[in-house]
Structure formats: C-alpha cells, structure tokens
Amino acid sequence: MEIKPKSACETCPQFNADGLKKLGVNTTNFDFVVALAGNPNTGKSTVFNALTGLRQHTGNWPGKTVTRAEGGFEYNSQKFKLVDLPGTYSLLSTSEDEEVARNFILFGRPSVTVIVADASRLERNLNLVLQILEITDYAVLCLNLMDEAKRNNIEIDTRTLARDLGIPVVPTSARFNEGIPDLISAISELANGNIQCKPHRIKNIPKNIESAVEKLSKEIKNEYPDIPNSRWIAFRLLEGDSHIIDLLRKGEFV
C-alpha cells in the first residue's frame, strides 16, 4: 500500500476539524484554565461563545457580563476551561464590579490569560493590557473587532505590536468567527510552553519610583521565589492597598 506524504496543511492541528471540540459547560477534568479579560464592550463574551459553543448573552453595551461565566473546549485532546471575566478598564481602581476580574487574574493563576482588546480603540485598551502584563507571563492579545477597525480605516501592524508587547497577538473578528482558529492555537502553544513570552514592563515611570519598586520586588522575590508578579505586588504595596497587605499577611500568594 502506498503511503502518501502528508502535506504541511494536513499535519497542522488547525487543519483537523477533530482538533477542536466545543465542550459547552462541561468543564470537568480540564488540563488548563484560560481567563478572558479585557475592557468592557470589546466582545469578550462573543469570543467566549465562539470558543465554547455556548450562547452567553451578548449585547452592545459596557457591563453586560456581571458574573464569571465558565465553559470549555478541547483542542488536540487537551481540555481547556475558559473563564469569561467581567470587563474592566483598569486593575488599579477599587470598584466592586472590577474586583472579580482583578482577583481571578491575580489569584486564580490561569494557565493563559487572553486579553481581548478593541482594535479600533487600541491605545485606550492598552492601559489594561500593560497592567495585566505586569501580573502574568502567559498572555495572548486577542485583537478583536478587526472588522470595525477596518471600517474605520485603521491598520494595525500586529507583528510590531507583538514584538513591543512581548506576547502573541492574534487579530480576530469574533462576531464572524474570523481568527478564532489562530487564537486557539496560540492559547494551546502558550499553555504547553511552546511559546515563551517576554511581557512588556511599564517603563515610563520616574527613576525614584522605579528604584523603589525594584527594591521592594526583590524582597518579595526573596520571600516567594516562584511568584511571577512581584513587581505588581510592589506597585500595590506602594499604593497602600490594604487588601493586598491582608492577603500577604495571610500568605495567599504562596
């Protein structure tokens, strides 16, 4: 029997329809936890639905998702649990509806954090992106609403953006299911450690603050060598965040 050589496409996981299984709400025995974060009204729930096959209610207004929604998908026989977080503009504020997102990214320790951003309003969205990159080394930017950006005549050089941010950048139009396969493979590659991120760290801060942060984060690292976000904790301590101080005392970061 003659064996045909497989084309590059056939060996690619994206080519196989079997590679992806939408698992709906069935999220038992998962291998990885993936968090979906982002500004309000950037289409997180739409991305969530596209990945899980669920029909979480979506709508064109900020603040639609108020609870944490969970779903799952299977890709190359690995199970991913996906958590759709309420939208948030910043992790620096202390408002209650943003707390769910903040706590989950900090303490839920997701394997991968997918940051969904509005491509047509990238600059404003980067505020949150840069904050999340201080917290986690495993992030992918889902540059959603590319259709809208195109309509507004905005072009984005995703490779330069990926280089500047130090994480994979995947352009998508989740409403039309465009770019979702690429997003899935980026998530999978990150989760399996095939891609290493070198996340951007906030640079434009005065020298004295930078050195204070450095000093503090070194101490924190001494205490907790495995912690990925010592700089962020240093930021919060310098801010005098009593919540973080409490958690530190309770040993929540270990």
């Binding site: 600059e123 840069l130 005549n153 072009e155 906030i202 930021f235």
Partner: peptide, 27 residues
C-alpha cells in the same frame, strides 16, 4: 504622586506602542 505617576507611565507606554504599530488613514 505615585498613583498618578504610574498611571501616566502606563499611558505614555501605550502611546509609544500605538505609534509604532497603528496607522490611521483618514479616520
């Protein structure tokens, strides 16, 4: 002024990054 400095720093970073990769054509 730590909080403001940090927030300004983030916005400055964001502006730099956007300058390098986003091009608007007659928006």
């Amino acid at each position: 002024e730590f909080h403001d400095n940090l927030a300004e720093g983030i916005y400055a970073d964001a502006a730099e990054i956007v300058k390098g990769s986003v091009h608007k054509i007659n928006t």
